[in-house]
């Protein structure tokens, strides 16, 4: 394990950013934090988590896929992909690191999504272990230890120091390049902090929420559950939960006429929206109940069924904090899991 004084961090981050584009959580003037490209004076945010995960850096909200030149009856297809450069994402919370694994299984499975893969292959992830979880956190429900080593490198921030440990070879190389800033350290302070955090985690309101009742093969147990009616009753279909979710990956593909040609782009979409499945012959999900159910069934049953039991919720708690009607996956799990076990 290596360490540096907290006071050294601005210099250290500057050195990283000078070598490679660097993204880190920075406080905004709206009272939250967002992953932001490093700039002179950028402070590493102390927020428990960013308003949105680092999903944008791999799967941007909108992204151009291909362009077309049309003239008369002819069409020309233009491959507008660009070579990606290496970049570092610093300060990713362990729940969000897990969320990247969830996205990887979608976009990196055959046929590989070359747009996502290009970014993913050039990224180095520095995880920031949690020490101050908030009341909306429930990563433990999905087996995540937010104090443990993950990503390429993990940092543990204490009162006056930052402790560093590599988890991958790429992480080792990253730390080697920062050798001038770091000194050897034993893990006493980190071990003490991890124990302290574990005690905090055990007192969180959602600490006892269990996912055991869910998983692959549970479609029949939950699909026709009468509780979907009441759970979905107040859902506005606003899609905020999807927008802030670090694992939601549904997308739309649209064409845009630039005036000089056509650009085909993709953008985030939401299964909560009424036109998501609407087609010429009708809509298989006619009411908000079906759309609401789809989102939670996908996270808790369908995705795990296709991905060795891995849930596509990581317990980051963003949707709990942001839903305008205070409905959320924890309530859904508590309600459904209560009598279907």
């Amino acid at each position: 394990m290596r360490k540096c004084a907290l006071s050294v961090m601005p210099d250290l981050l500057r050195a990283v950013a000078e070598a490679t584009p660097l993204y880190l959580p920075v406080d905004t003037d709206k009272g939250d934090a967002l992953f932001t490209r490093w700039f002179e004076g950028a402070d590493w945010s102390g927020a428990c988590n960013t308003a949105r995960g680092p999903k944008d850096l791999f799967f941007p909200q909108t992204e151009d896929l291909v362009a077309f030149k049309t003239a008369g009856k002819t069409v020309e297809v233009l491959d507008i992909r660009r070579e990606q450069e290496d970049f570092v994402v610093f300060g990713v919370r362990p729940c969000d690191v897990k969320a990247i694994e969830v996205l990887d299984r979608v976009f990196l499975s055959e046929p590989v999504d070359s747009f996502y893969a290009a970014r993913r292959n050039h990224a180095l992830i520095v995880t920031a272990a949690c020490s101050r979880p908030t009341e909306t956190c429930f990563c433990g429900t999905f087996g995540i230890d937010p104090t443990a080593l993950c990503g390429d490198v993990t940092v543990w921030k204490t009162e006056d120091h930052v402790y560093w440990q590599a988890a991958t070879e790429q992480g080792e190389r990253f730390l080697a390049a920062l050798d001038g800033f770091l000194e050897d350290a034993d893990d006493t302070a980190v071990t003490a902090q991890r124990a302290q955090t574990a005690a905090l985690l055990s007192r969180l309101p959602l600490h006892s929420l269990r996912a055991d009742a869910f998983g692959g093969g549970k479609t029949e147990a939950f699909f026709d559950h009468p509780a979907w009616d009441t759970l979905s009753q107040s859902c506005l279909g606003c899609g905020t939960c999807t927008f802030v979710c670090p694992t939601c990956q549904c997308y739309d593909i649209k064409d845009f006429d630039t005036g000089h040609g056509v650009v085909r782009y993709r953008c985030w979409d939401s299964c909560m929206y009424s036109d998501f499945t609407k087609m010429a012959h009708g809509n298989p999900r006619l009411t908000q109940k079906e759309r609401f159910r789809q989102r939670f069934m996908h996270k808790l049953v369908y995705y795990p069924e296709n991905n060795d039991g891995l849930f596509s919720c990581v317990g980051c708690g963003r949707c709990l904090a942001k839903c305008p009607i205070s409905m959320n996956i924890a309530t859904v799990m508590n309600t459904l899991g209560g009598d279907a076990r």
């Binding site: 692959g216 479609t219 990956q249 549904c250 997308y251 979409d269 299964c271 998501f276 996908h298 296709n306």
Partner: peptide, 8 residues
């Protein structure tokens, strides 16, 4: 893209 997802 998630659109034609029915069950798993």
């Amino acid at each position: 893209c998630g659109r034609c997802n029915v069950g798993s």
